[in-house]
Structure formats: structure tokens, C-alpha cells
């Protein structure tokens, strides 16, 4: 599968970031495995350590398996001013995990994100590609419950 993703792009080094994005998005555990790194290194003819350099530089890549749904709580000032730390507390209680951890059932990973640019509706969080704004503790609970429900 990884090979197929690679082949959508020309074997040029400047496609590395896009390829890694697609591999991560397609992976059910939203991460980039050592095998994937090897395949990409071979395809683009670049050293493995270069890829790890890139993977560790950018915060959106993960080299560890993650949950089915990735919750990214915005940690920038406009959200902070509007009470994002209360949302963080609520999320931690609801999920029973800390930042950077994955729930035992593999359903959620909790992360911080830099500004999502939805500051007019702070505090906000993003679950996968969906942004949820004007959060309150009740709303957070409702969103999490809904996702749990549709499992």
C-alpha cells in the first residue's frame, strides 16, 4: 500500500512531505511505521535518517501508533484566554489520558495543536479534519460521547 502511495508522486525529494502526509492519513493508526520509512527512503533514494529528521521536526507526524480519532486541542493564546485549559481538564477526565497518549480502546489520541485559525470561535479543537468551536465543557462531553456512540 505504501508503495502505491509513493508511486502517485514523482520520485523527487521535494515530494517527501506530501508522501508522508498521505501515508499517515491512510494508516488506520495514523502513524508512520519504520517499514514505511524504509519504503519511502528506497523510492525517493534518500537516506533513512533524512526522513527521520523530517518526521521529528514537524509536529504533525507521529512515529508511534495513535488512536482512530485524533483530538487536537488548540493551545494558542486566544483559546487560552477563552478558557482552553478547562477544556483540557475535561478531555483528560473524559478520556482518562494525558496529552500525547492514546485511550486503551484505541479510539482517541489527545494532542495539542498550534493555532487552528478559528480564533473567533475560541476555544476550539479539531478531531481529525473537523473543527469544533465555541467549546464548553458540556459541548466537549457531547462531542466525545457522540463519537463513542457511533463506534
Amino acid at each position: 500500500m505504501i508503495k502505491e502511495i509513493c508511486q502517485k508522486y514523482a520520485p523527487r525529494k521535494d515530494n517527501l512531505i506530501q508522501i508522508l502526509h498521505e501515508i499517515q492519513d491512510q494508516d488506520p493508526q495514523h502513524y508512520i511505521s519504520p517499514e514505511a520509512v524504509d519504503t519511502v527512503a528506497e523510492y525517493l533514494d534518500i537516506p533513512v535518517n533524512h526522513i527521520y529528521g523530517v518526521l521529528t521536526f514537524y509536529t504533525m507526524y507521529s512515529t508511534k501508533p495513535r488512536g482512530k480519532n485524533i483530538i487536537r486541542l488548540c493551545e494558542s493564546p486566544p483559546c487560552y484566554i477563552k478558557g482552553s485549559d478547562n477544556m483540557l481538564r475535561k478531555l483528560k477526565v473524559l478520556l482518562g489520558i494525558n496529552i500525547g497518549e492514546t485511550t486503551k480502546d484505541g479510539l482517541f489520541t489527545l494532542e495539542f495543536t498550534s493555532c487552528l485559525g478559528v480564533c473567533g470561535n475560541a476555544p476550539v479543537m479539531m478531531i481529525n479534519d473537523d473543527v469544533y468551536g465555541d467549546l464548553t465543557e458540556e459541548k466537549v462531553e457531547e462531542i466525545i460521547e457522540r463519537i463513542r456512540g457511533r463506534r
Binding site: 494558542s76 493564546p77 486566544p78 498550534s114 493555532c115 485559525g117 478559528v118 480564533c119 473567533g120
Partner: peptide, 11 residues
Amino acid sequence: EGDPGAFMDRS
């Protein structure tokens, strides 16, 4: 657009 609190470019 990385500045926290800026979202004109996104918009």
C-alpha cells in the same frame, strides 16, 4: 499563517 490569533490568510 502560524501566528496564533491570526486567520485572515485562511479566510
